[in-house]
Design a protein around this nucleic acid. Structure first.
Lengths: 209, 209
DNA sequence: TAGATTGTTAATCGATTAACAATC
DNA sequence: TAGATTGTTAATCGATTAACAATC
């Protein structure tokens, strides 16, 4: 399904809705109105209804939304039921931490492999994910489906690695290096976790409180 | 210094400017116009001038901006020259990764200690940062300056830990748990790194490309 | 001086909020 | 049926972009 004209602001709220609805599910809440959902999330009821209406009609007048149903609709919109394939490049501290702690399965991603230069790691596995030699990367991508590459490598080699991967046809990057990656191909998607940018905004806010 | 009415959008662009200017500095670029800076960053020249004008007049007509000077001004606005104090709660994989890889010093933060429950870690240190027993946390905060607490602990205990710390007077949180933390005190600042939300937006975009 | 580029004011665009008819 | 709450249209608000006088 291809949807046009959904603003980035809306897209960024979807995971929050999904998270809140998951929480409501686990609390056993069956139905909720845009008003009460908004109260819990600090969002106006208007915005919630406006957001949802971009994707369909999930509620019922006079009743509100069925929590479980709405959760599953939003999960579907986000693609959590799509079984995407992902590999991790760089099995250092951060790659390691993601492999150990991040619940990839709840987001519809399957981690197929990790790659590293360090020969002490190569051949081993973490949480069932094999660590392969960086040498095997090109071959791997040519012969396997890779929807997203996680970049947990040093800044210095980030753009060149991205270029190499884009060349090989990779279209999705979850970028943990504090580098602004770019591609001339608009089909290529980057999602950045810029730790430093994040901490600096906090620094600004505590300094200007 | 207290600035009023600076929008979140502007604040979130500041670290990007700072990053780009640092890069320009290292390339030896001495001066730059809003136009060329905009070209490099994919931002309009208008927006750049508008953004900077929130904080002062850093340019010169007919010349543009002195890169080094502008960088230092923005760094100052962000507080990188302020030597903030920070502790890390949870020295597991993620806390570990931050201690090893994150260049706290370039952001004006000094990491004074890490805390963990795991007695195998307590007493040791990582990159010169001592790992203390969680038991000592309350005393530590009462007797030391703590501007920011990094939360790299399990989701399940996140809000209760935040409540405990807020009670003790902590006003800044760098939150790595995928939980929406909140406080009734508007002085308390949360900056969230929601990994799952981030990956889900990527999932959405590759599914709706 | 002439050209370039700023800081700022005005215009435009887009996102959020309010209002309300439709209807469960 | 009456009350509640949706989905949607209209109004408002805020952020981005354009324009331009000031001036280096």
């Amino acid at each position: 399904m291809k949807r046009e004209n959904i603003s980035d602001a809306v897209i960024r709220r979807l995971p929050r809705y999904y998270r809140q609805l998951t929480e409501l599910c686990s609390r056993g809440v069956v139905r909720i109105s845009s008003h009460s959902l908004g109260e819990e999330m600090n969002i106006t009821a208007s915005q919630i209804r406006q957001d949802f209406s971009c994707f369909g009609e999930f509620g019922q007048q006079g009743y509100g939304y069925n929590v479980e149903e709405l959760r599953s609709e939003i999960g579907h919109i986000l693609g959590v039921d799509q079984d995407h394939h992902l590999i991790i490049i760089g099995a250092g501290n951060l790659g390691h931490a993601l492999l150990h702690n991040f619940p990839f399965h709840t987001t519809g991603f399957h981690v197929d492999a990790a790659f590293d230069l360090n020969q002490n790691l190569v051949g081993g596995s973490i949480k069932g994910v094999p660590i392969l030699d960086m040498e095997e990367l090109d071959d791997y991508i040519k012969t396997n489906t890779v929807d997203v590459v996680v970049l947990t490598i040093p800044q210095a080699v980030a753009q060149q690695m991205a270029d190499r991967l884009i060349e090989l046809g990779v279209k999705g990057f979850w970028n943990f290096t504090n580098v602004e990656l770019s591609s001339s191909d608009p089909q290529v998607q980057f999602e950045n976790i810029h730790f430093a940018d994040s901490l600096l905004t906090l620094s600004y806010r505590i300094a200007n409180r």
